[in-house]
Nucleic acid binder design. Structure first.
Length: 714
DNA sequence: GAGCACTGC
């Protein structure tokens, strides 16, 4: 087949998509209004075709068409496809931009990108003056960045003076979503028109099972039972399971099992290959299958009903990874995967009662269950001072916002009146948690950023230590990892990470070095890229801004940890009894060192520590830690309690009067007593550690955990 | 003495 014939066939193929019949209407709808909501199921062609139509209709005359995606792979693959259909070289008229990969040029007019990239662009150009159309895709997924973009775009038009001032031609906004959220979106965007494109899906019938908790699913016995025995509703699952095990299935099609555990990454590639004729393929997948993977020909779904989710808990001030029931809408989506190419079946292994009583209608959007510190700083830098009344499609709880403000104040990113500081303006440029950025900037001001940049990169990527399942191998890996930690000459997990980065980077054969040391080469490679990016950002800021310069007259060997303290003083803990540590952030949580830490079993020698993160499993564990001296954080710790909720909410609402400010400052001055003894400060800090609160939080957690245990009686 | 879903800049 010649090249042109192939292209023609692509073009003809696109004319078969459901969206094609609505081409002219769609173009008119975009012309007629500022906001437009477009809904359509997967397969309607909206992601690839709408930008193409708008391009053909002349929307690129003044500016670009930008289309956001929540994920990188999607941005890249869709751009490739559209470039092919429009018969142009990728990176010319049609391009994409994701982190570490900018495939655009001066001539790019149709630009696919991740939502995070567009947010970065808004920081540099708040009215998006280069764009004539912005399309937010997959809005129903409710990713944090897409939600923020939605609010910003809505706000751009309500602050009409501002928007007009910065632009010479109109901006059109299209939001694309699955059907369920369309009316809500329309209401949010001043009752904009909703354009519905029929999808191309087949019916899926669902049946229920008898599992009532993740433990049921976890136990191999149960899974085996489910897969080989029976279902409450009879033969259907039996048939599906027969299909799974039979070498010569009687029905064509695939079967997919969405689980909530991890999947060996090295096996992912084979998933996309069609099975040999007469062999059934079974895909066992995490929720990566919900969005990121498109596997054609799936006919059966087995739905576990659970998902592993990272939730922010503002009660204890930390992120907790937990297994929770999915929402009904998520379950419908899982089921929908079986009906893409023909009629399908979904086997829900939980009871109908569980569906009715324990599963929420919709998934809680990310913005309502995540730490907002970085996002609030971004908003502040965009001139959104009233972060409580920002137009959120779904408002985060006020205490989440207050907690974020408090942290930003603690990191010197905002001042007492909620205004972004010089330091805050530098911090927003880094793709890191503000605390870590604070440590990086401290190091840079002292000229020792070579210590902090690699560390920040290592803390940004997935876990680098491989721990195999095989007991022998596990022992081997543990020994090697411990030796790596010992090499730094001190108990310090941060220093170990830095050392691994440096050792690998300076090795002649870095990938072989990783293999020898049970380290993920892929993770280290991305750490190298992140470090390069962070270094570039730092260099740029040092050239244009009034960059802070500090001096350090302490012991050189303390420099690294002293820098860390400026970003991690919110994560300070003091050893209380035995191996238990008590956090000093005001929550007074009782935490243990994780056994993977080089400080583990050395607790007796420790007093004060700082840590990177907390993991709640059988206990509350802190991972990646190092010992510090109380003197290093003594002056910082009072900052943890300096601001109270009342003041912050005023700051957040921009309601602070001058009178209030004077009152507040007087109170603050009174608090700052001339010389306070160490014991006094500690006493004061520990007094805040309300044990009832901690015990309560713990009890709630255990209760939730209990609820998830198998209940054989049912 | 451990139990790490998934994105994104």
């Amino acid at each position: 087949m010649s090249k042109s014939t192939r292209l023609d066939s692509k073009e003809n193929e696109s004319k078969l998509l459901p969206i094609y019949r609505h081409k002219e209407e769609l173009i008119l709808a975009v012309k007629d209004s500022t906001f437009l909501a477009v809904t359509g199921e997967t397969g309607s062609g909206k992601t690839t075709q709408l930008p193409k139509y708008l391009h053909q209709a002349g929307f690129c005359k003044d500016g670009k068409i930008g289309i956001t995606q929540p994920r990188r792979v999607a941005a890249i693959t869709v751009a490739q496809r559209v470039a092919q259909e429009m018969q142009c070289t990728l990176g010319r008229e049609v391009g994409y931009q994701v982190r570490f990969d900018d495939c655009t040029s001066q001539s790019t007019v149709v630009k696919y990108m991740t939502d995070g990239c567009l947010l970065r662009e808004i920081l540099a150009d708040p009215v998006l003056s280069q764009y004539s159309v912005v399309i937010l895709d997959e809005v129903h997924e409710r990713s944090l960045n897409t939600d923020i973009l939605l609010g910003l775009l809505k706000k751009m038009f309500s602050d009409s003076a501002k928007a007009i001032k910065g632009r010479s031609f109109p901006l059109k906004v299209v939001v694309m979503s699955a059907t369920l959220e369309a009316d809500k979106l329309s209401a949010f965007l001043s009752d904009c028109p909703v354009f519905t494109i029929p999808g191309r899906t087949f019916p899926v019938t669902s049946t229920f099972g008898f599992a009532v908790g993740p433990k049921d699913i976890e136990s191999a016995g149960y899974l085996k039972e489910v897969l080989s025995f029976s279902f409450e509703s009879g033969r259907e699952l039996k048939r599906a399971c027969d299909l799974l095990y039979e070498k010569r299935p009687t029905v064509e099609g695939l079967l997919i099992l969405p689980l909530y555990g991890s999947m060996p990454t090295d096996q992912q590639r084979q998933i996309f290959q069609p099975p040999p004729s007469g062999i059934r393929k079974c895909v066992v997948a995490t929720n990566i299958a919900a969005t990121s993977l498109t596997i054609n020909g799936i006919k059966y779904i087995i739905d576990s009903g659970f998902v592993k989710q990272l939730n922010h808990n503002s009660r204890v001030g930390m992120d907790i990874l937990e297994v929770v029931p999915i929402s009904k809408s998520e379950s419908e989506q899982r089921a929908g995967r079986a009906g893409r190419t023909s009629a399908g079946k979904c086997f829900r292994i939980y009871t109908k009662e569980f569906w009715e009583k324990s599963m929420p209608e919709y998934t809680v959007p990310e913005i309502q269950r995540t730490s907002l510190t970085a996002v609030i700083l971004t908003l502040k830098c965009l001139g959104v001072h009233d972060v409580i009344r920002f137009p959120y499609l779904d408002c985060p709880e006020e205490r989440f916002i207050l907690e974020a403000l408090k942290q930003l104040y603690q990191f010197d990113a905002i001042d007492r009146r909620g205004r972004v500081t010089q330091l805050g303006k530098l911090m927003v440029e880094f793709p890191l948690h503000p605390g870590l950025t604070r440590a990086v900037l401290k190091a840079a001001s002292l000229g020792c950023h070579d210590l902090l940049l690699p560390l920040a990169a290592m803390l940004s990527v997935e876990n680098i230590f491989i721990r195999p399942g095989h007991p022998e191998k596990q022992k081997e890996a543990d020994t090697i990892h411990r030796a790596l930690a010992a090499k730094t000459g001190s108990m310090n997990d941060f220093a170990t990470l830095l050392s691994v980065f440096q050792l690998c980077k300076s090795s002649d054969r870095p990938s072989a070095w990783c293999k020898d040391h049970w380290i993920h080469w892929r993770a280290l490679k991305s750490a190298f890229s992140v470090e390069t990016q962070l270094r570039e950002i730092l260099l740029r800021l040092q050239q244009v801004q009034d960059f802070p310069v500090d001096t350090f007259d302490g012991d050189k060997s303390e420099l690294f940890r002293r820098c860390l303290c400026t970003g991690y003083f919110t994560n300070v803990a003091r050893r209380s009894v035995g191996k238990v540590f008590c956090t000093m952030d005001g929550h007074g949580s009782m935490v243990h060192l994780h056994p993977s830490s080089s400080l583990f079993d050395q607790e007796g020698k420790l007093n004060w520590i700082i840590f990177h993160d907390v993991l709640v499993t059988s206990r509350m564990y802190v991972r990646t830690a190092c010992p510090i001296r109380y003197e290093w954080v003594k002056d910082l710790l009072p900052k943890l309690h300096e601001v109270d909720v009342y003041e912050l909410s005023s700051v957040a609402r921009e309601e602070v009067t001058d009178e209030e400010m004077i009152q507040w400052e007087t109170r603050e001055a009174a608090k700052r007593q001339p010389e306070v003894s160490t014991e006094d400060v500690i006493k004061k800090l520990e007094k805040r550690n309300n044990e009832a609160t901690v015990g309560d939080a713990r009890a709630r957690y255990m209760q939730r955990k209990q609820q998830r245990q198998p209940n054989k009686a049912l």
